[in-house]
Amino acid sequence: MDRPYKVGATINDCYEVRRIIGSGSFGIVYLCKDLRTNDNLVVKQLRPSKQRFKSEIKLFENEIYILRKLDNEYMPRLYEAFLREGSYFYVMTFIDGYDLDEQLFSKKKSFSESESLLFLLQLLELVEYLHERDIYHQDLRIPNILLKINHPYLIDFGLARQVDSTSSSNKNKSLILELKQQDYFDLGDILLFLLYSTYPSKNKKALPWTEELSLNRGTVHLLKRLLKIERPYSNTKEISADLHTAIMAVNS
């Protein structure tokens, strides 16, 4: 039932499959050539086995809804969405970049403390762009970050949520803070991955990062707040202030 389209097959009479980029439990992602323009585009298909469930269709439609809201050069842009032969699809720009997860673990790319903080600053700008539009990614992980000319591109909005910030109810405010802080926590987790890229593991027994990594005081403070070890951040401006302080201290 979930057999993917073969290389050379055509989707919706105009998207020729070049290769399968990814195949997860939720969807199948293809690199395709638009036969009308010869452009490379990405086509995502909701797995046919998931189409039996209204909740899965709703998630797929929510991802399309979120992508329609984006207009940022470091995020994918939606071209169209369609239903074909009972299957759900959408088409977006192809970002010709490198998976950060693969770069760190297979290619052994390393980031110094300064480079890690500067990279986080670029990521924070993307998160701030989303939060200003009441969008919360909720799945900020290294496999969902692509590197292109040393700049991060953010992908995979399958778990993203949009919540109206104009509502004054306490429940709504609490939900928004929770969603924000989940994205902030994920930024802290990503920063740890970057910082560990230059860590020479000598201990047979894993130790907490506070003991393993030798970091500037400002970087430690930033991490502890992102990871909710100390008072968590409530907005990106607070993070940006501490991040700039840490960058200045490391580079001084």
Rank of each mutant, 00 (worst) to 15 (best):
N12D: 15
V17Y: 04
V17I: 07
R18T: 00
I20K: 14
I21G: 03
G24W: 07
G24N: 08
I28S: 01
I28R: 08
V29R: 08
V29T: 15
Y30I: 00
K33D: 09
L35W: 06
L35S: 04
Q45S: 08
L46K: 10
K50I: 00
Q51D: 06
E56P: 09
E56I: 02
F60W: 10
E61H: 14
E63Q: 13
I64R: 11
I64F: 08
Y65P: 00
N72H: 14
M75T: 03
G86H: 07
S87E: 12
T93V: 00
I95M: 06
D96T: 00
L104K: 11
K108N: 14
K108E: 11
F111S: 04
L117C: 05
L117H: 08
F119L: 04
L123D: 01
V127W: 04
E128T: 12
E128K: 14
H131V: 01
E132N: 13
Y136P: 02
H137S: 04
L140N: 06
K148H: 11
P152S: 03
Y153D: 01
D156E: 00
F157Y: 12
K171Q: 14
N172Q: 11
K173P: 07
I176T: 05
E178Y: 14
K180Y: 11
Q181F: 07
D183R: 10
F185I: 02
G188V: 01
G188R: 08
L191S: 02
L195T: 00
Y196M: 03
T198Y: 06
Y199C: 03
K205I: 15
A206H: 11
L207C: 08
T210R: 15
E212M: 11
L213S: 01
S214L: 09
G218P: 06
T219I: 02
L222E: 06
K228W: 14
R231V: 12
S234R: 15
S234E: 13
N235A: 00
N235D: 13
H244R: 15
A246V: 05
A246R: 12
V250P: 07
S252L: 10
